[in-house]
Nucleic acid binder design. Structure first.
Lengths: 291, 291
DNA sequence: TATCCATTATAGCAGATTCGTATAGTCGTC
DNA sequence: GACGACTATACGAATCTGCTATAATGGATA
């Protein structure tokens, strides 16, 4: 059973005569004739009665038409879907990400990305960086963003490094400095990430190196929480300049010395080929993370 | 988009390598290769990554596979339905019939007919003969059975004529006669069809011709009702020997003289070609009505 | 490193399919 | 009986299909 036969059959059922069906399909009448003859021969059905040089569909033709039309529609649908996939209008994007980025930056980028992709399905899962690392290795995600370092580094990994900045209320006396050091923060109430975090370690070293007293008044799991505490006037803190930017709207941001390094990475599944969609989104994400 | 391309694609997705897919489809590996290349070119999708001489399906291929498989199934289904129609396993039969035949004989024949036709859909509508005649002219039925005469006789009509028989309880004194005439029934309680029915007219003429008194104690619309009254001992009556046979199980049936003619006809839609199914059933029905 | 093995890709050819043109056949209508 | 509308058949050119032969690739192995 060939597709062209079904197309001819449908056109013939819809338009009554081979001559008209041929016009509609942009082919010759004898072409239709042989197609229909072939279809009748192959199915073994008498689809039309030849009465006086005219065609009359048999009840069998009407029964078969339902299925033929359905089959054609399914094929045409497959064709349309292929076009949608190609143009990036259809697809899905499953992203695993750590909290700070999945709260603001990712949704912002995704809604921009989805603007001209009507059939896009997006799934974001928020987990801590270790879990994100595990998830991406199970191949269930197209993309992941995690903080470094990772216990088991993976091969397809694009790293972004940032020098952390000091954040403090505009009204804070230190806000008038161009650059801030541990000396400036001697005894100043400080909001930091948890003890286990590399940021914590680096800060501890920095303060001890400068011989300044580090007055930790709050430890948080995420930069976003720390930002909110600083906004509320609980103290000053440190933050990355890109991912956390949306959380530091009302705050003063100043370079911090010595360098406190913060690294994140885009992870891709290793054994899986990345989808075009994922590659396109990575481009957008990369631009945002480089900025 | 050609069917063979989709088949190759499906086989390749299911079996991983072109070599195996080729085996399964009974074709050569280069054949698959060119088919897939053609499909990729026509859809504009990169369906497989060529990594180290092996194929790895892209996420796009997985998305497209869903639709491709669906389309193939629809086509295969159409093919299967065609076979079912051809073998008479699928189809419908809409029959309009007058009451006496639609109560016993038609259901009996239809259940026999449906025994080896699992997908057969049957619709029986019971109306009086005039309505049946109208219904069949609206082309909504494959087949109709009506009593004659009809106001507007239709062309496609196969007539069956019967000589009515006298029915009476086995215990009735007249049951020992070989043949019964109006003389024998002089004054005997008689069950007949309604006044407007040709049977009524013919009986009235017969009795008056023989100079016998026709003692009508009941008029019914259908033979089946009349049969039941006779069975209950309300009187004797007259009945056709074939259609009503199922209703006269416990009764004595004797030839009646003079001839009382009862005619029915199988009607076919005129402008519609009859389905193979209908033609097959007509054969069965014809054999039953001729018996 | 060289060789073998399993795989995919390409070239060339024969046969099948498709589809056009030309033409004949059929039927209803004027 | 001619005409118009339609379908069927014949035939040839272009295209498609699918084969064999063969090259190319890369992993495994000695």
């Amino acid at each position: 059973m060939r597709l062209r036969q079904l197309e001819c059959f449908r056109a013939l059922m819809l338009h009554g005569t081979m001559t008209r069906a041929a016009e509609l399909l942009g082919m010759s009448q004898p072409g239709i004739s042989t197609m229909i003859a072939g279809l009748e021969h192959e199915t073994g059905l008498t689809l039309f009665l030849r009465r006086g040089g005219r065609l009359q569909p048999t009840p069998e033709a009407k029964l078969f038409y339902v299925e033929a039309a359905r089959a054609l529609e399914a094929v045409e649908n497959a064709s349309r879907v292929a076009a949608e996939i190609r143009s990036g209008r259809r697809g899905h994007l499953a992203i695993a990400a750590y909290p700070s980025i999945s709260i603001k930056l990712l949704p912002r980028l995704l809604s921009q990305f989805a603007r001209d992709r009507p059939e896009l399905q997006v799934k974001i899962i928020t987990r801590n960086s270790a879990t994100v690392r595990e998830l991406v290795s199970t191949q269930q995600f197209d993309l992941a963003v995690a903080e470094l370092p990772l216990d088991y580094p993976t091969s397809h990994m694009e790293v972004f490094s940032y020098d952390c900045m000091c954040m403090l209320p505009h009204a804070h006396p230190l806000a008038k400095l161009k650059q801030i050091t541990p000396d400036d923060l001697d005894g100043v109430p400080f909001v930091t990430l948890f003890r286990g975090d590399p940021i914590y370690q680096q800060l501890a070293s920095a303060f001890s190196e400068y011989g300044a007293r580090w007055n930790v008044v709050a430890e948080t799991e995420f930069f976003s929480t720390a930002c909110q505490l600083v906004t509320e006037g609980r103290g000053v803190g440190i933050v990355d300049p890109v991912v956390s930017k949306p959380f530091t709207e009302g705050l003063a941001i100043r370079p911090f010395k010595p360098r406190i390094q913060y690294q994140i990475a885009i992870l891709s599944p290793t054994h899986e080929a990345p989808s075009q969609m994922a590659q396109d989104f990575v481009k957008l994400l990369r631009r945002a993370l480089r900025a």
